[in-house]
């Protein structure tokens, strides 16, 4: 079993969101939901993170940041898009300046719907991401073994 499952560290980035989803996300850290009991820590630093939680509809400015942060995360890693905006652009979908959906710029693994997404949904999304993370870890291990051989 991989320990990634027991200690998922997340990085949260608001890519031009309305902050609604972000507040819900932070609510997960509060005593009511207390995600730390699952070992989840909000690192605020891509180099420490395993799961990238992105909210918002992404515009040109935030695209660069999202890409940078993603590149600075060590493998294995997964991306979770949170909220209607991050899924498809949400109510901003028709705005001229947004990409509309994180998957326009990053490979997204889990989509958490809602406007704003509820903390329970977010936690559920993270838990689903853990399964994917574990898959990736195995894949990664196999790759490393092959490189060595």
């Amino acid at each position: 079993m991989s320990f990634l499952k027991k200690s998922p560290w997340v990085l949260h980035y608001a890519a031009t969101s309305c902050n609604g989803c972000d507040i819900e996300l932070l609510a997960c850290l509060t005593p009511l939901y207390d995600v730390e009991r699952l070992g989840i820590v909000n690192t605020g630093n891509p180099k420490h993170a395993d799961i990238f939680l992105v909210t918002g509809s992404v515009n040109e400015e935030s695209r660069k940041v999202v890409e940078n942060l993603y590149a600075q995360m060590p493998d294995p890693k997964v991306v979770v898009a949170i909220g209607a905006c991050a899924l498809s652009g949400g109510i901003f979908r028709d705005a001229y300046n947004v990409y509309g959906g994180i998957d326009q710029v990053l490979p997204v693994d889990v989509y958490v719907p809602g406007c704003a997404a509820r903390p329970e949904a977010i936690i559920d999304g993270v838990v689903q991401a853990l399964g994917i993370l574990e898959e990736r870890a195995k894949e990664r291990k196999r790759q490393r073994r092959m490189v060595r051989a």
Binding site: F3, S7, K47, D50, Q72, P74, D75, P76, R140, K141
Partner: peptide, 13 residues
């Protein structure tokens, strides 16, 4: 302990 074991599993940049 889980944290550190996980870190050891991850890539290092």
């Amino acid at each position: 302990v889980y944290d550190v074991l996980k870190l050891l599993e991850k890539d290092t940049l």
